[in-house]
C-alpha cells in the first residue's frame, strides 16, 4: 500500500502562498515585501556588496581622502603677513620655505631618527616577548600575557605620558631628565603593544613543526631564528613597524611632556596652527610625514611584505 500513501499525503495541506501566481515558473519570491527584497538582493550579489560597503566607502572618501586633499590644497595657500587673513591663491612659497630653512630640515631628520629608534627598540623588546607568548607559554599563560599586553592600551595616553614625566623628572624615580632620549623611551613604551601583537600573531601562524624540523636537521637556536623564524615572520615585523614608525612620526604630545625643549614635526604643525596662526604652513609641514610614510610603505612593498599582511 506504499504507492497510494505517497501520492495522497495525509496531514495539513501546504500553506497557500499569498497573492499566489501559479507556483514554479512565475513566482520565485513568495511572501511579504521584506522577503522579496531579501530574495532580490540574494540574486544580485554586486548590488548587495555595494550596499554593505557604501557606509565605509563614504567615510573613507569624504572624511579621510577629502581631508587629506583639503590639507594638500591649503598647503598651497598663504596668510597675509599683516592682517593674518587666509589668502586663497596657489603658491609654492610654503614648500620653498620648508626646503630652504635649515631648522625644518633638522627637525624632519630628528623626527625620522626618533621614529626609527622607537621602531628598533620596540622590535628588540617585542620579538623575544612575542616569541615567549606564542611558542613557550602554556595556552592559559598565553591568554593572560595577551591581556597583559593589551591592558596599557585601555589607559589614557596622557596618563601614561605623565607617568613617564614623573619617572624621568630630575627628582623622579629614574631621574634621567627630559629631552630626546626621554621622548624615545616614552614613545617606545607607548607603542610597544602595536609591535608585539602583529609579531605574536605572525609567530602563532608559524607551525611548531617548522622549528622542530630545523632542530631535527641540526640547526641550533640562532640558526633556526635566522633561517626559518625571521624570514617567515618578517611581514609581521613590517606590519608592526608601520604602526610604531607612523605613530612616532606624527606625535607631538609626548615630546611636549617629556621632550624638554626639543621639537619634532608635530610640534611645528601644532605651533603654526595655534601660536603662529599660519594654517597653510602647518598644512605644508604636515605633508612631510605623509610623504615619509608613503616612501616607507613603498620601500617595504618592494620586500613583498605587504602581500602577506
Amino acid at each position: 500500500m506504499n504507492t497510494t500513501a505517497n501520492t495522497t499525503p495525509p496531514g495539513p495541506p501546504p500553506p497557500a502562498a499569498p497573492g499566489a501566481a501559479p507556483r514554479g515558473a512565475a513566482a520565485p519570491a513568495p511572501g511579504g515585501p521584506r522577503r522579496r527584497l531579501a530574495a532580490f538582493l540574494h540574486r544580485h550579489a554586486p548590488l548587495r556588496l555595494s550596499l554593505l560597503l557604501s557606509a565605509p566607502m563614504l567615510w573613507l572618501g569624504v572624511a579621510y581622502l577629502g581631508a587629506l586633499a583639503a590639507m594638500f590644497i591649503s598647503a598651497l595657500w598663504r596668510t597675509d603677513t599683516f592682517t593674518g587673513d587666509l589668502v586663497r591663491e596657489l603658491t609654492w612659497a610654503n614648500f620653498q620655505e620648508l626646503l630652504t630653512a635649515e631648522v625644518y630640515r633638522t627637525i624632519a631628520l630628528r623626527s625620522v631618527g626618533v621614529a626609527a629608534a622607537v621602531t628598533l627598540i620596540d622590535l628588540v623588546v617585542a620579538f623575544p616577548m612575542a616569541f615567549a607568548m606564542a611558542k613557550l607559554a602554556s595556552p592559559r599563560a598565553q591568554r593572560w600575557l595577551v591581556i597583559a599586553v593589551l591592558t596599557p592600551l585601555w589607559a589614557s595616553y596622557l596618563v601614561k605620558a605623565y607617568a613617564w614625566r614623573v619617572l624621568l623628572s630630575a627628582d623622579g624615580l629614574l631621574g634621567w631628565g627630559y629631552g630626546l632620549t626621554a621622548t624615545i623611551i616614552t614613545l617606545s613604551y607607548l607603542w610597544l603593544p602595536y609591535m608585539i601583537l602583529p609579531i605574536y600573531a605572525g609567530l602563532e601562524r608559524l607551525p611548531n613543526s617548522l622549528l622542530e624540523a630545523a632542530g631535527d636537521l641540526g640547526a641550533r637556536g640562532w640558526r633556526t631564528f635566522r633561517t626559518v623564524v625571521w624570514p617567515l615572520t618578517f611581514p609581521a615585523v613590517v606590519a608592526g613597524s608601520i604602526f610604531t614608525f607612523s605613530l612616532s612620526l606624527g606625535d607631538y604630545i609626548t615630546v611636549k611632556i617629556v621632550g624638554g625643549r626639543s621639537q619634532l614635526i608635530g610640534n611645528v604643525v601644532y605651533d603654526n596652527i595655534g601660536a603662529a596662526n599660519n594654517l597653510p604652513f602647518a598644512a605644508a609641514v604636515a605633508t612631510v610625514p605623509v610623504l615619509i610614510m608613503l616612501a616607507y610603505l613603498a620601500a617595504v612593498r618592494r620586500t613583498g611584505a605587504l602581500e602577506n599582511l
Binding site: P207, S209, L210, G215, D216, L217, R220, T227, V228
Partner: peptide, 30 residues
C-alpha cells in the same frame, strides 16, 4: 641530548617543509 645533537632525522606528519625555500634549499638545509 637536543634534537640537533642526535643522529636521527624525522619526516613530519605535516611534512614541515620550509615554505620560503626552494625544494633544493629544503633538501640542502641539513
Amino acid at each position: 641530548l637536543a634534537p640537533f645533537e642526535r643522529d636521527v632525522n624525522t619526516v613530519f606528519q605535516d611534512y614541515a617543509l620550509f615554505p620560503h625555500m626552494s625544494v633544493l634549499d629544503n633538501v640542502e638545509y641539513g
